[in-house]
Simulated assay, not measured.
Amino acid sequence: MSAMANNPAHLLLLDRDQAAALLRPDDVLAAVRESFLLHASGDGRNFPLVREALPAGVFGIKSGGVAPQDLLGMKAAGFWPGNRSHGADGHQATIMLFDPATGRPQCLIDGNAVTTERTAAAGALGLLALARPDSEALCVFGTGVQGSAHVDHALRVLPGLRRVRYLTSDGRRDPAFEARFAQRCDVAPGAGADAAVADSDIVITATTGRGPLFAPQAVRPGTHLNCVGSDTRGKRELAEGMLALASVWVDDLAQALAIGELQWAPQTAVKEFGALLAEGAPARHGVAAEAITIFDMTGIALQDLSVARMLRQRALATGTGTSVAWPW
């Protein structure tokens, strides 16, 4: 490990490419799993969420800590649609880790790749716990960064998946998306939203959350849904009545009520996903075969911090990143 590891007068910087190069799917999956278990045990805390509209976009702060592990930090992130006109990603995120004993910043990390991978890893854990193990067909709404990452992780953890049908916001084919997965599954556009959902064992919604994507009646018994796009007040992907038809899990109850699908049906009976993982039970344990299951994913700070800590440790061990003087 480099000499910088215990030198509080320096700050480690990891840019986009450096952070992405250090991310490994299996390690991200393990870190995200740990974050859910920390949340369930109470050792990990998600602090109150900041999520505010701006003239040019949406800005948010997710922060938290794990006192027994000396972990403290935050992610400042949001969505600026105007970035696309400059050829840049509309989603922007930056993660900062701090020494909880002194408040000193330890590491500054570009958070875009971290956000993508930790969200898709959380989705993969949702599939492992709640989707039918014999699932063969997947439908995804959205073929952008998040949609692609979720399909990639789904194919990794559920090797029985054979067919992927996708739907885009404008109804057009996405040749790049098809090319990415052509060697791993039968991938093609869905014939229509309801038809694609009705023909799927798994549904992933990874859109900008402008409104309901399909009719609840299209979801057949035994289907699992990972819902990703509702992450701000006013956004939704599920139609009215959908939550009432399903057994629902959330990553964090308070956050799901504030910005997730649960904001539209706050009376819904739900469970937190970390408690399910803590049970260590087989997939769909205690869930009826014909039950529809939903994982309402808003993304929690502990996911970002667990992955960021892993990146910092790996960067220090490999000499990756830039160390800058940060005097007391």
Rank of each mutant, 00 (worst) to 15 (best):
T119H: 09
G126C: 05
V187D: 08
G142V: 04
L167C: 11
G211S: 00
S2I: 00
P266Q: 08
D43S: 09
G190E: 07
M297E: 15
L130D: 01
F214N: 03
T119Q: 14
Y166V: 01
T293M: 03
E117Q: 15
G57V: 11
G82Q: 12
G321F: 15
W249F: 06
T318N: 09
A176T: 10
I109H: 01
L276K: 01
A77V: 08
T115F: 06
L108M: 10
A254W: 12
A308D: 06
G64N: 00
L130K: 01
L167I: 00
A265Y: 10
T208I: 12
Q217K: 13
D43E: 11
A218C: 08
W264F: 14
A19F: 05
A278K: 12
L311M: 08
L11C: 07
W326T: 01
R16D: 13
G78A: 09
N7S: 13
R132H: 14
I95D: 00
H150T: 06
A53K: 15
R173H: 15
T115R: 00
F295R: 14
A19N: 02
F59H: 02
I294L: 07
D43P: 00
A191R: 14
A281R: 07
G260E: 02
I259C: 11
G44Q: 10
A301W: 00
T205I: 05
F273D: 15
A288L: 11
V197D: 03
A113Y: 04
A113M: 11
N7V: 07
V164I: 14
I204M: 07
Q146M: 09
L225K: 02
H10M: 14
L23F: 05
P105M: 03
D252A: 04
M4S: 15
A215D: 14
L108V: 05
V219K: 03
G319M: 07
A88N: 12
Q92A: 15
A5T: 12
